[in-house]
Design a protein around this nucleic acid. Structure first.
Lengths: 203, 203
DNA sequence: GTTGCTGTGTTCTCATAATGTTCTCATTGT
DNA sequence: ACAATGAGAACATTATGAGAACACAGCAAC
């Protein structure tokens, strides 16, 4: 493999270009490459790019701005993943989270999961708003502190935080909303339908 | 690929036209494009539109007012509808999700989207908590009220609600947290990096 | 219809800024 | 000594911006 001939910095440059391209859809400028790997000279960045050209990994546009083209394309993004960036603070645009490149939602689509749209504000202080979609993993048991979908008296369904009373005879369903009160039911009136594993909101 | 050969400004113009068309139902005038991307010359705006014509992305009416037509229909992604789940079994569902029996995350996986992990509590009242992942659509323009990723002074990145001051010279970045204050900057100190299109939390 | 006015699209030229490219020199580590 | 690295100057080309000048579309009054 040719990539073995690359120096550390050359590989960093290549990774930076690939990453930048994945996010922005276009190639970075030399200055952006320089910033991205922590040097201040466009000339040096250009030298690295040139090395990648000679390695056959990229091609340069003809003096065109953002003219770098990636030749050997990396593994494609899967349909259920996104480039994941981190630290919404700190210098430069946005920096990549080290170690993790992709947001993978596959965990949401397991066999025993289902989605429910939330109505009402009972969990608003837990960051679950009216209209959000929550991902529920189907289970009939829950631990204290879990947020669960509970079926009460086989008729009413609700999303609340789950808590057993100390004597185990009652179940407390605790809203995350200071205006609402905890509901307490005999244990046999409550059936757990699933526990919360994710939450999604679209804007 | 569609945005391959475009320059930064050309891409901004295309974005602006698409966005304007989506909002207003008609294409913008050249002067509106110029205003939208922050230049004062209709001629320059026309030059950009012409570049998009040559790229095959739009067509101009023949001198017609608002004659620009978008050609390559937007990145309508059809295939990325994801597996899905529906309502709660048994008992009475939570007002069963009427009309929709699929969770469609297609909007999250567009070409110019990326994910960022949120640090801090500045948007807590909008249901965006520390540690959540937000989905950002890469754009350089925004409307009042959008939640945006903004780059301030090319150094600091932040997630806030976007608002232009009435005189258009300042940009307000409004947190959703009663303990934090709105930040006001001269317009040229703020660069939009993208607008919020989704939010995800894993438990 | 025709006329005339206004705004808009179009085509230029000129100037400036930004970017790509090439180069030399200095520093570091092996 | 040598290779890798970094800074930065100097230059060529591309990208961008302003604005003038003209032609045509849209519209209202006649």
């Amino acid at each position: 493999m040719r990539t073995q001939q690359l120096t550390d910095q050359q590989r960093r440059v290549l990774e930076f270009i690939e990453h930048y391209h994945a996010v922005h859809g276009v190639s970075p400028k030399l200055q952006e490459i320089a910033d991205g790997i922590g040097i201040s000279s466009r000339g040096v960045a250009h030298r690295y790019v040139q090395a990648l050209v000679e390695a056959g990994l990229v091609a340069t546009g003809n003096g065109r701005h953002r003219g770098i083209r990636l030749l050997q394309s990396k593994p494609q993004r899967t349909e259920s993943s996104l480039p994941l960036l981190g630290r919404i603070a700190a210098g430069r645009p946005i920096e990549a989270i080290s170690g993790e490149d992709e947001l993978d939602l596959s965990g949401f689509f397991g066999e025993h999961n289902f989605a429910v749209q939330v109505q009402g504000d009972s969990m608003i202080e837990a960051g679950i708003l009216d209209g959000d979609t929550v991902i529920i993993h189907f289970r009939e048991t829950a631990d204290n502190g879990d947020i669960v979908v509970a079926l009460i008296d086989e008729s009413e369904t609700t999303l609340k935080r789950f808590q057993r009373s100390p004597c185990r005879k009652y179940i407390e369903l605790i809203p995350a909303n200071a205006n609402m009160e905890t509901m307490i039911y005999a244990a046999d009136r409550v059936r757990i339908q699933g526990v919360l594993v994710g939450q999604i909101r679209k804007y």
